[in-house]
């Protein structure tokens, strides 16, 4: 599975879920509605500049804070295809994987990649090609359990599949 898109880099560590989707919008769980407020408090222009298939790139501990899965839905709804970061907060990572949504760990991601860079991501082979700089980065491979979850399209589909079995 090859994903192509442009990078939006937030080099700061600890981008938290209140920043990804502020709690004042959690009265909705509609992905399209949440998407209109993605990253609003730290980058008011994000929703306008993001294109379907783009990537968010950040540094350590991306998605820390609240357990709100709305953070994953807001990014996905805004068109973000995957998030690439040095490291992820654990509940954000769980939520991403449970949705069949890729949260890719690449140490030094926000230093290697600049905003606007064209990226190609191969989840199965485990590399990111930076088309703009002609660099290729291998990322930390997903454990088999996670690969299976991504293949199933998330935890609920996996469970529903097993129940219908």
């Amino acid at each position: 599975m090859l994903m192509k898109g442009r990078a939006h880099v937030y080099p700061r560590a600890h981008i938290n879920t209140d920043e990804i989707i502020p709690a004042r919008y959690l009265t909705s769980d509609d992905e399209a509605e949440l998407a209109t407020h993605a990253m609003e408090d730290i980058d008011a222009g994000f929703v306008k500049s993001v294109c379907a298939g783009d990537f968010v790139v950040s540094s350590q501990d991306f998605g820390c804070g609240s357990s709100r899965e709305h953070a994953v839905w807001a990014l996905r709804g805004a068109g973000v295809q995957a998030v690439i970061a040095d490291s992820f907060a654990r509940i954000f990572f769980r939520n991403a994987i449970n949705n069949g949504y890729a949260a890719i760990e690449l140490p030094g991601a926000s230093e290697k990649i600049s905003s606007g860079d064209e990226l190609e991501v191969d989840l199965e082979k485990g590399y990111i090609r930076n088309v703009t700089t002609s660099e290729t980065y291998a990322f930390t491979p997903f454990p088999p359990f996670v690969v299976e979850m991504l293949r199933c399209g998330g935890l609920l589909r996996k469970i529903a599949g097993a129940k219908k079995g």
Binding site: R68, N98, L155, L156, I159, K163
Partner: peptide, 30 residues
């Protein structure tokens, strides 16, 4: 509990952790 402060309950010697909504659906079902 789909809430990050679920770790509170560890004060009683329980394993207690925050999860997401998909996790919550999985637990409610299984």
């Amino acid at each position: 509990c789909p809430d990050s402060h679920t770790c509170t309950h560890g004060a009683f010697g329980a394993f207690s952790t925050g999860i997401g909504s998909t996790d919550a659906a999985a637990v409610l079902a299984t």
